[in-house]
Design a protein around this nucleic acid. Structure first.
Length: 318
DNA sequence: GTTCGGTACTACCAACTTTA
DNA sequence: TAAAGTTGGTAGTACCGAAC
């Protein structure tokens, strides 16, 4: 669902489902760059100048790169993109052609164990508290070697610092991955066409606030879907029920400010609808009431449960 | 507290596929 | 063609929540 720019309520390439909302565009965009975290340094630059294995390390990584399959590399890229993924996430993304679900799971675990053995990935220790009952999946992250290998492959030089995530960050990161993979699965069943999905930090948007102050909105996902003749733009905010409604309202206000900048409309002719994905109906009612009670453009926001979320995206203009 | 059922994961083995 | 790698079936362990 997209909110059209005033005066140009349809995009150039494709008609867009839209709300009838005036668009008070104001300031000229002063900063439309996205933060992608790239730099021009090479992987050998990542090692200290005095490092005794500065060149050997790169050769080992190059050898590793040649020894792993294309699927292995895609798995590393997926983990890098999301920072943290469970075994089940990786199975749903990369192990879809197996004879049975059990076979897919087994194959997934074998491959992950092999990549773990190569020290390209590592898993967190937490395995307790799965869905309803039972153990939860392993949660995987790139190991330093896996990170460097990807930088070589992608020609980037920025490494991510390895650290144990907090429980809150872990849950939020995995919930975002859940949402992304739910869309991927829907696209596989032809329920919708997934045009683009940007995760953080690619989903971030900078804009100029009052007085030219640089401001930033950080959607969890920036998604463009297509259905038939229509293309829908969304900013997804995955809510775990941990933020107070006033905090959510402040974020909504920030989205309205960004909309007034006109940056998104200049790029796409439309402004995305902001979709809050919440854990249950009670939370949905609470956030909806908070947004209603604030001086916000109601048509810009939609609050849905995680069970309703894919259906709403498929519905587009719903 | 015990039992049961659900989920995730692993080990072993056999069959199949790929590669040198 | 043989070795190596991959895949799938079966059986088992570990862990947790729910029911009793």
């Amino acid at each position: 669902m997209s909110v059209p720019q005033e005066g140009t309520d349809r995009p150039i390439a494709r008609p867009i489902a839209s709300t009838s909302q005036p668009d008070p565009r104001r300031s000229e965009p002063t900063n439309r760059s996205l933060v992608v975290g790239n730099s021009s340094s090479t992987s050998s630059d990542l090692l200290p100048a005095h490092h005794p294995n500065k060149r050997t390390g790169r050769r080992v990584l190059a050898s590793l790169r040649n020894s792993i399959s294309a699927r292995d590399l895609e798995i590393l890229k997926s983990i890098s993109t999301h920072r943290l993924l469970t075994s089940k996430h990786i199975e749903q993304l990369h192990f879809t052609g197996h004879g049975s679900a059990l076979a897919a799971t087994r194959s997934t675990n074998r491959v992950l164990k092999r990549l773990d053995g190569l020290q390209l990935i590592s898993h967190l220790d937490r395995r307790v508290g799965g869905v309803d009952a039972g153990s939860s999946s392993y949660v995987w992250q790139l190991a330093p070697a896996g990170d460097r290998l990807l930088q070589i492959d992608l020609g980037n030089g920025t490494r991510r610092r390895q650290r144990e995530p907090s429980v809150r960050l872990l849950e939020h990161t995995l919930a975002i991955a859940d949402a992304h993979i739910a869309l991927v699965r829907a696209s596989r069943t032809n329920d919708l066409e997934l045009v683009t999905v940007q995760v953080e930090p690619g989903s971030w948007r900078y804009f100029a606030g009052p007085g030219g102050v640089r401001r930033l909105i950080r959607p969890d996902l920036a998604v463009v879907t297509a259905q038939g003749e229509y293309e829908d733009h969304w900013f997804l905010e995955v809510d775990l029920g941990s933020e107070h409604p006033p905090t959510v309202v402040r974020k909504c206000q920030l989205y309205e400010d960004y909309r007034r900048s006109g940056i998104e409309q200049d790029a796409h002719n439309v402004f995305p609808r902001i979709l809050w994905v919440v854990p249950n109906q009670m939370r949905a009612d609470k956030l909806s009431a908070a947004i209603r009670s604030a001086r916000l453009d109601q048509s810009l926001f939609r609050v849905v449960t995680k069970e309703q979320f894919v259906g709403v995206v498929i519905g587009g203009a719903a």
